[in-house]
Amino acid sequence: MKFKIKIWRQKNAKDKGKFVTYDIDNISADTSFLEMLDILNDKLISEGKDPVAFDHDCREGICGMCSLYINGEAHGPDTLVTTCQLHMRKFKDGQTITVEPWRSAGFPLVKDLIVNRNAFDKILQAGGFISVNTGGAQDANTIPIPKKDADESMDAAACVGCGACVATCKNGSAMLFVAARVSSLAKLPQGKAEAATRAKAMLAKMDELGFGACTNTGACQVECPKGISISHIARLNREFLSAKIKD
């Protein structure tokens, strides 16, 4: 297969940046999207040009490092996958593929297709934990947790922190990310003690870091590689508002 790859190139945060189109040939349909970029980079380096910088690591859809906006969709045209699990068989031979970085005020650009997602760490540092020190925990089976609750908690905990929700949201909102953590912990008895402070602190941090407000378009859940539902946003809203009412 061959493709025209139209990629956003930007040397650093201060550079203006522009699209550059590259031709690439001899790509097997079984090649993953990132392997295609590897091949492109190999070619660029051989030609003495700067390779395209992009984030990637595990290449099996779990580390959340890869972050490309491909042909107008976060993680590209396939559903329930991260970019690293996207394969070239999902594209038409000869197609032009536009590759852009995540764009949002919360994720400043670092280089080419790499953005800075430290804001996610900061949001979690604000309260995305259960305050328990190592060592003092009681036996794991002391508190039974209904399977349904554990399952729902796990649904939310599947978040890989890639930022596709923010990248996709027309409001640049991180609500799905925040909700996934708040909801996951709120569904467990261990997480209930701090549920109110957690929701407030994490939301305040999200607002402070320049993410937008949710307008319930639901685009985030469609593009989320883990299919996390916006029903968790409803739970976050509930947790947050009921906490605020008690203040």
Binding site: F129, V132, A137, I145, A150, S184
Partner: peptide, 16 residues
């Protein structure tokens, strides 16, 4: 024990 206390959602049976 520690992981459960941290909120790790391990798989559970119907009895919780």
């Amino acid at each position: 024990d520690q992981c459960v206390a941290q909120g790790v959602p391990f798989a559970r049976d119907y009895g919780g």
